[in-house]
Amino acid sequence: MNILIVSTYFSPNVNIASFRIDAFARYFSRAGHAVSVIALGPRDETVRRDGYTVHYLEDHFGNYSFRDPKEGLRGIAWSLSSTLQSRLMLDSRAMWRLRACAKARELLDREPVDVLLTTYGPLAPHMIALRLRKKGYKFHWVADMRDEMSDHPHHSLHIARRLRRVERIVLREADLVTTVSRPLVDQFRRLCGHDRFLEVRNGYDYEEVRDASFQPRFTLGYVGRFYWESRPDNLFEVLAEMKRRGEIPSDFRFRIVGNHLRLVVPEAIRDNVEQEAEVPHDEALAILRQLDVLVMIHPTGRRGVYTGKVFDYLASNKPILALFDPRDVVADLLAETRAGFVADKDDREGVRRKILECLRLWRDREVLPRDWEKIRQYRRKNQVGILLKHLEATLRRH
């Protein structure tokens, strides 16, 4: 197959969304398919990497993803430009998409593609696919939604209504819609009259850690940023109360690595909480081995959404403490793989009991009986393989 991917998320823009699209390109290519990528980049350039070609295009009107934080007024202007584009056109990359669409037409005029894969967040890649269809280009369009579109809880009602209209068009026109969970598939299905959906989860991309290790001091850790309502305030209060009661070692550690904003920590545990700067992904994976409990926090109300770190955590052989909705997908994942514990982040007594379970494992030098066969399903290669198998079968039929 000849495959073109259009995404604003791609290396060197390092985040969970980029890792997903990087994996599509990498494993499509390694399976023997010709792959090209049009991506947002810090400058205009075309490079070869890992067997495929990436056409990077700079966004002259809002390239804040790559700006130097010391850039001052220019960085502020970029951020304001992106915000304005979002308000007026629902798309923070609306100006970039003009250049990206022109590049896509140039590539398609040179050589047609069998598959066009576009990503959501922002809207630009999907809008490029719609534009190309309108211009008469032929391809099998995969619209990768990943998480919600109009149903994201942080959209205003006005923005959500406007976005819903575009969302219905994308769902109707795409030949296949991919997202990360069954609840999200069901959410999108309600907006259209077809069943052209495929669940393709995120995953991990390193060798599973099968050995056991324990820290001299009981050490919890959170690697990544705290988004929106996913705050550790209740967890801090639970830990402070447990320390006052003597239920947890007084010298326990809670390492928070990579959160951008300084958190306010209760005085009782201020000496226990260590807030560390962001590190590259490879270093973050190494830090997982220096922890006894891997903490995840997610607000209730966003059904079907995984945090990217859960899959890295899965392969680490450390117990996961997920402060999530116990009725949602992460709870099902941890039950399936036997990799950790779940408690609602607002249920302080429930959180306390799960911490005590993690503490017992540490004291007894025990590891959870993970189901490694199920965990290996979440290697990125295997998740991309689900999509590849579907595409190969579909294109053979046509």
Rank of each mutant, 00 (worst) to 15 (best):
Y306P: 06
V273F: 01
L294C: 12
Q275W: 05
L285F: 00
E267A: 15
V351G: 09
D332C: 08
P299V: 05
V257C: 10
L334N: 10
E274D: 11
A315R: 05
P319M: 07
V293D: 03
V330L: 07
G340R: 06
T337N: 07
V295I: 15
T337P: 01
L334Y: 11
P326G: 04
E278P: 00
M296W: 01
D325F: 04
E349H: 12
A322H: 07
D325E: 11
D328H: 09
H260N: 08
G258Q: 03
L333G: 04
E276M: 13
V293S: 01
T300A: 14
R270C: 11
R302V: 14
N272K: 10
D292V: 08
V342C: 11
V273K: 02
L261K: 15
H260C: 01
L321D: 03
E278H: 12
L291P: 05
V257E: 10
F341H: 05
V342Y: 04
L321T: 11
E349T: 12
Q290P: 01
T300M: 12
R327H: 14
P319D: 07
E349M: 13
L334S: 12
G350M: 06
F324N: 03
D282Y: 08
F311D: 13
M296V: 11
T300F: 00
H298F: 15
Q290C: 10
L323D: 02
V265A: 01
L323G: 00
V293C: 12
E278V: 08
N272L: 03
V342H: 03
D346A: 14
Y313K: 14
N317K: 08
G308I: 04
R302H: 09
D282I: 05
A284P: 02
L285V: 01
D325A: 05
R327Q: 14
L323E: 01
L323Q: 09
L334Q: 08
N259W: 02
N317V: 09
F324L: 01
A277Q: 09
A277K: 10
L261T: 14
T307N: 10
E283Q: 12
P319K: 13
P266W: 04
V330H: 10
V342R: 02
V305R: 09
D346N: 15
E336V: 00
A286M: 13
E267H: 11
